[in-house]
């Protein structure tokens, strides 16, 4: 059952260096969010706070209306799964099955349930045949899949991916994106941080932009990427497709009805529809 996550005015400092300043967000069940911002903007720290590893210095986190305190922060570990940027830093066991079982065992589940969940996660991430492999014998893409399976076995409702595509080859990156979309389609809340505007543009329904520990913009991809000052401040790029589409509008090739295509296929379809439609009316 997806849950609602609310953050009210949280701040966090590492050894008197402010990393998060007064952040408030409300994340509804089933949302698909990209978090963007330069390195050091506080994305990873925000995620660690959301997942319960760190406790905010001030402010509160609410999960389905329940206030999270230090003593019940383990709920966050369970409900909000965090997939780390580097799979290597997340994987601790020396074989894939034991690795995936770590989370469920910590949740205090009985052996049967643990085995069931591990098997499910293994088949969901198509890791069959890898069960007894050691992480040092896996490729980068395979390790990423293991690190996602880790979290899936915990049945978290909110899934956070810290830069899921970094250090992956194009094929693995593509696979990961497909998995993310599939997970979202099944109703889970997805939050992913990324530097890749094109990915954020086609993937997210909502983009949160962070800069120096603050949320400086929060809205639909179109809204975010049509604000040049935000783009400049957050060190991000405008998505190629959006730039091209704007060019097409200016050249009067694409219709200016405020509707922007999200993927290349969609753009092609819109153009085809427009011109096929014109031809048939002539």
């Amino acid at each position: 059952m997806p849950c609602k996550l609310e953050i009210k005015n949280i701040s966090f400092a590492y050894e008197n260096k402010n990393v998060l300043r007064n952040i408030s967000l409300s994340i509804d069940p089933g949302e698909k969010i990209a978090v963007m911002g330069a390195n050091g903007a506080g994305k990873s720290t925000l995620f660690l706070n959301l997942n319960g590893v760190l406790t905010p210095d001030t402010g509160d986190i609410y999960l389905d209306g329940i206030r999270i305190l230090k003593k019940n922060r383990k709920i966050l570990n369970k409900k909000v799964g965090l997939v780390f940027q580097e799979a290597d830093s997340q994987i601790i066991a020396s074989n894939v099955r034991s690795e995936i079982s770590f989370g469920p065992i910590n949740m205090g589940l009985d052996r049967q349930e643990v085995i069931k969940r591990v098997d499910e996660a293994v088949s969901y991430m198509s890791l069959e045949g890898f069960e007894n492999r050691a992480p040092q014998y896996l490729s980068g893409g395979e390790k990423k899949r293991v690190s996602i399976a880790d979290i899936l076995a915990m049945h978290s409702d909110v899934l956070i991916f810290d830069e899921p595509m970094t250090a992956l080859d194009p094929v693995s990156a593509n696979d990961t994106e497909e998995i993310l979309n599939k997970l979202s389609a099944e109703g889970r809340t997805l939050i992913a941080s990324t530097h890749d505007s094109d990915f954020a543009y086609r993937f997210a329904k909502r983009i949160i932009v962070m800069c120096e520990g603050e949320v400086i913009a929060d809205g639909t991809p179109y809204e975010i990427f049509s604000q040049p000052d935000v783009i400049k401040k957050a060190h991000i790029k405008k998505p190629v497709l959006m730039t091209v589409w704007e060019g097409l509008i200016n050249l009067d090739i694409a219709g200016n009805d405020g509707k922007y295509p999200v993927t290349e296929a969609e753009a092609l379809e819109m153009l085809t529809l427009k011109y096929k439609g014109k031809e048939s009316s002539q």
């Binding site: 369970k78 997340q90 989370g103």
Partner: peptide
């Protein structure tokens, strides 16, 4: 941090 994020509680146990 990665240990904590999956509910590590001072005991490292695997299947």
């Amino acid at each position: 941090d990665a240990l904590l994020s999956r509910g590590y509680d001072g005991r490292l146990e695997f299947l």
